[in-house]
Amino acid sequence: MIVHMLRFAFKETATEEDRERVLAAMRRTASVESVAFSTVGHSLDTDGGYTHAYCVAIPDLPALRRYMHDPVHLAGDPQILPYLARIAIGPDLSDDPTPGLADRILALHEEKVALYPQWGAELAPLLAA
């Protein structure tokens, strides 16, 4: 199982309605067939100013690839990213002892950035914020 975590903070300009729409879009993404379980909501650890968190558990690398390219996920990101001030990816974790698993996961991310450069360009400044 691969457990993928995001911590994030909304832009100050995001209204309560915007925030609810973003969380609803995240919950739709977290409900795709490749996800075993998920949770989306307030972060209990606000270190670094992150106020919310997103967590999905995905059974294996093939399921992770499906998750990353699922039409629901692809459609959700443009509804989510414009409202975020910053995002932290991880820490992720896994019970899979396969050597190099982290590198394989990173390669899937890099593959997605190559296929969807606009998505990568929208995500990059949020990671550096």
Score class of each variant (00 low, 15 high):
Pro117Tyr: 11
Leu93Phe: 10
Ala63Cys: 13
Leu74Gln: 13
Val22Gly: 05
Phe37Lys: 15
Asp70Gln: 04
Leu123Ser: 00
Ala107Glu: 15
Lys11Tyr: 05
Val35Glu: 06
Val72Arg: 00
Thr15Lys: 05
Glu122Gln: 13
Ala128Gly: 04
Val72His: 00
Glu110Gly: 04
Thr51Val: 05
Asp18Val: 02
Phe8Asp: 05
Ile80His: 05
Ala85Asp: 13
Val56Met: 09
Ala75Arg: 06
Glu12Gln: 13
Pro117Val: 15
Glu20Val: 10
Gln79Lys: 09
His109Ile: 15
Tyr50Gln: 02
Pro97Trp: 01
Leu108His: 05
Thr15Ser: 15
Gly90Leu: 02
Leu23Asp: 11
Arg104Pro: 07
Met68Asp: 11
Gln118Met: 02
Ile105Tyr: 08
Tyr67Arg: 02
Leu106Trp: 11
Val72Tyr: 00
Ala14Lys: 06
Pro97Arg: 01
Pro78Lys: 01
Ser31Ile: 01
Leu101Lys: 02
Val32Arg: 03
Val72Leu: 00
Ala128Cys: 05
Phe10Trp: 09
Met1Leu: 05
Ala53Ile: 07
Ile2Tyr: 02
Ala124Arg: 07
His69Asn: 14
Glu33Gly: 15
Thr51Trp: 03
Arg65Asp: 15
Ser38Gln: 12
His42Asn: 04
Pro91Asp: 01
Glu111Tyr: 04
Ala124Met: 06
Ala36Met: 11
Trp119Ala: 07
Arg7Pro: 02
Ser94Met: 06
Asp77Leu: 12
Met5Trp: 05
Tyr50Lys: 00
Phe10Asp: 12
Arg21Val: 13
Thr39Trp: 03
Ile87Phe: 00
Leu126Gln: 03
Gly48Phe: 07
Glu33Thr: 14
Leu108Ser: 07
Pro78Trp: 02
Tyr116Ala: 10
Leu123Lys: 01
Ala9Asp: 10
Arg104Glu: 15
His69Lys: 06
Leu106Gly: 10
Leu115Cys: 09
Pro117Ser: 10
Tyr67Met: 03
Ala63Arg: 08
Pro99Phe: 09
Leu106Arg: 15
Asp77Tyr: 09
Asp92Asn: 14
Ala107His: 08
Cys55His: 03
Pro99Trp: 08
Ala121Val: 00
Lys112Met: 15
Leu84Ala: 05
Phe10Ser: 10
Ala24Asn: 14
Leu108Glu: 14
Ala75His: 03
Ala9Arg: 04
Asp95Gly: 08
Val32Pro: 05
Gly41Phe: 00
His109Gly: 12
Ala25Asn: 08
Ile89His: 11
Tyr54Thr: 04
Pro125Glu: 06
Tyr67Cys: 04
Pro59Val: 12
Asp95Leu: 04
Ala25Gln: 07
Ala88Pro: 00
Gly90Asn: 09
Pro91Gln: 11
Leu115Thr: 14
Asp92Arg: 02
Gly48Ile: 09
Ala25Lys: 04
Asp45Tyr: 11
Tyr54Ile: 06
Arg27Cys: 11
Arg28Leu: 12
Ser31Leu: 02
Thr29Ser: 15
Arg65Ala: 13
Ala30Gly: 13
Asp70Ala: 06
Thr15Gly: 14
His4Tyr: 14
Arg66Trp: 12
Pro62Gln: 05
Ala88Cys: 09
Leu101Phe: 08
Pro99Leu: 07
Ile58Ser: 08
Ala102Tyr: 09
Val3Thr: 15
Thr51Phe: 01
Ala124Gly: 03
Arg7Leu: 02
Asp96Met: 12
Ala14Phe: 07
Glu16Thr: 13
Asp103Met: 09
Arg7Lys: 14
Pro62Thr: 06
Asp47Trp: 07
Val22Cys: 07
Ala63Gln: 11
Glu122Cys: 07
Gly41Pro: 04
